[in-house]
Simulated scan of single mutants.
Amino acid sequence: MGSVIAETFADAGYQVIIVGRSAERLDAAKQQLQSRPGRSIATLPGDVGRRSECDRIATEVERQFGRLDSLVNCVGASDRGLADELDAERLRELIDQNVTTALLCCQALRGLLERSGGSVVNIGSLAGKVGARYLGGYNVAKHALTGLTQQLRLEWRERGIHVALVSPGPIRREDAGTRYRDRADGSLPASASAPGGGTKVKGLAPQRVARIVLQCARRRRTDVILPGYLRLLIVLGNAFPRLGDWLLIKFTS
């Protein structure tokens, strides 16, 4: 998803900086992204789970490029499991990956974003809007990211920084349905290893999600749910919790 977002912004004329812990993987991603002429891609190795590293990245962005117009936080990890079997350490890992990384990047890069009147786009999930079954601590982490995004949007409004959330359903990928089989033990149905924990929502093309992320940065859209028709179901589910539970059961195997 991050790679597709990077190429979408690059094709729209942005100079893109991709950040990750592995310099080797960053170089490989840069080569792949620059295979199409006209794209401007730079890399900055760093661990965005550490504030000192985020501060160093912010310093390098200012030194090398002079400004920052958009920050896209798309670090994250999903999971499978039952809530009553959720290990506290695993929950901390998921929160660190899905929430803390976004918080630290926002804090470190706030000055640059305020100077440009820029945008932050956090990549959430449908699991940050509803408490779907079989997703372990992923629901908790993405709900926390949803709350953090709104809080930042309200607090940074006066600073001229726009903060958006994109909450997609399952993304189409080559390993869909197989990468969580090792976590689907006897306490979970076989369908739990499927995208979205067995949701009946059709997988989204990553290019579609990336275009929405670009719109949030450029047009300052606030909170986008994909697919869009689920927004009404989520609203109804929040207004009428019993109906919401019934809908969730109907939409998951």
Rank of each mutant, 00 (worst) to 15 (best):
R21N: 04
K250S: 09
P189T: 07
L109I: 07
F240K: 01
G177V: 08
S193V: 03
D245I: 04
V48N: 06
R221H: 14
L26G: 01
L104C: 03
V166T: 00
K142H: 09
I17C: 12
G131Y: 09
R51F: 14
S3P: 00
N122W: 04
G81N: 10
V16S: 02
G2V: 09
T252C: 06
R173K: 12
A88M: 13
M1H: 10
N98K: 08
G81W: 05
L71I: 08
S40C: 04
L86V: 07
L204Q: 13
S78A: 15
R80Y: 05
D245F: 00
L109S: 07
S119R: 06
R21K: 11
A102C: 11
S253T: 11
E114Y: 00
V213K: 09
Q32S: 12
S116E: 12
A141W: 10
L204C: 01
S191A: 15
E60A: 15
R39V: 03
V213T: 04
G196H: 06
L44H: 06
E174A: 15
P206F: 11
A88G: 01
L113E: 06
D223G: 05
P195C: 07
R80M: 09
T149V: 05
N98R: 11
L233Q: 03
A184N: 05
G46C: 09
R56F: 03
R220C: 08
G131M: 05
I171W: 02
S35V: 00
Q215W: 08
G46H: 08
A210G: 07
T199F: 06
A239N: 05
Y14F: 14
R21S: 08
E62L: 12
R183G: 06
S253W: 01
R179H: 05
R242L: 11
P37S: 04
D79E: 14
A10W: 06
P227M: 13
S52N: 12
V121D: 10
G76W: 07
R159T: 05
A88P: 00
I57T: 01
G186E: 14
T101A: 12
G169S: 05
V120Y: 08
G160M: 05
D175E: 14
G237W: 01
G117I: 02
G228D: 12
A6R: 04
F9T: 06
L152I: 02
N139S: 12
A12V: 04
Q215E: 12
P227N: 08
L33Q: 07
Q207T: 15
R218G: 00
S35I: 00
T252S: 15
P241H: 02
V163F: 08
A28G: 02
I171G: 06
V4K: 14
S191V: 12
R211V: 00
A205N: 13
P241Q: 08
A190I: 09
D11N: 12
V140G: 01
Y138N: 08
V213G: 09
L135Q: 14
G66Q: 06
L104E: 03
K30V: 02
S116A: 15
K250V: 12
I123Q: 09
R157I: 00
L109E: 03
R51E: 14
R220T: 09
